Deep mutational scan, measured.
Amino acid sequence: DDVELRDGDWRVELKDADEEILRAVEEAIKNGASEQELRELAERLIR
């Protein structure tokens, strides 16, 4: 699993992620995405 989400800690570690993925995830976090939404976003972007 390349995506690590810690309970109560919104730092997201994406291994080997490019800047576009990181920006998309950071934007989702700023917009108040839930953990499930972040997982789905990350899975779509990593593929």
Rank of each mutant, 00 (worst) to 15 (best):
D1L: 13
D1T: 07
D2E: 08
D2W: 12
D2L: 13
V3P: 01
V3M: 12
V3N: 14
E4Q: 11
E4I: 12
E4C: 13
E4S: 12
E4N: 10
E4V: 04
L5S: 08
L5M: 13
R6Y: 14
R6L: 13
R6Q: 15
R6T: 13
R6E: 11
R6W: 15
D7W: 10
D7Q: 07
D7A: 07
D7T: 07
D7P: 06
D7N: 07
G8M: 14
G8E: 13
D9W: 15
D9K: 08
D9T: 06
D9R: 05
D9M: 10
W10L: 04
W10K: 02
W10G: 03
R11K: 08
V12N: 05
V12I: 08
V12F: 05
E13R: 09
E13V: 15
E13C: 15
L14G: 02
L14I: 07
L14V: 03
L14A: 02
K15H: 07
K15G: 05
K15V: 13
K15R: 11
D16V: 07
D16I: 10
D16H: 12
D16S: 07
A17D: 04
A17E: 04
A17Q: 09
A17N: 03
A17Y: 13
A17L: 12
D18P: 15
E19I: 14
E20C: 15
E20M: 10
I21T: 09
L22C: 11
L22P: 00
L22E: 02
L22F: 07
L22D: 00
R23W: 10
A24H: 04
A24L: 12
A24T: 08
A24I: 15
E26I: 09
E26D: 05
E26G: 08
E27F: 08
E27R: 09
E27T: 05
A28R: 01
A28H: 03
A28M: 06
A28V: 01
I29V: 12
K30A: 14
K30T: 04
K30Y: 08
N31C: 00
N31Q: 11
N31W: 01
G32E: 01
G32Y: 01
G32Q: 01
G32T: 00
A33C: 03
A33L: 14
A33N: 02
A33W: 15
A33T: 04
A33Q: 03
A33E: 02
A33V: 09
S34T: 08
S34Y: 01
S34I: 02
E35L: 11
E35K: 07
E35N: 06
E35F: 03
E35Q: 02
Q36C: 05
E37T: 06
E37N: 03
E37R: 01
E37P: 00
L38V: 13
L38R: 02
R39E: 03
E40Y: 05
E40I: 08
E40D: 10
E40P: 00
L41C: 08
L41G: 00
L41H: 00
L41N: 00
A42Q: 05
A42D: 00
A42N: 01
A42I: 15
A42R: 03
E43M: 11
E43C: 13
R44M: 09
R44C: 11
L45S: 01
I46E: 03
I46C: 06
R47S: 15
R47V: 13
R47L: 15
R47M: 15
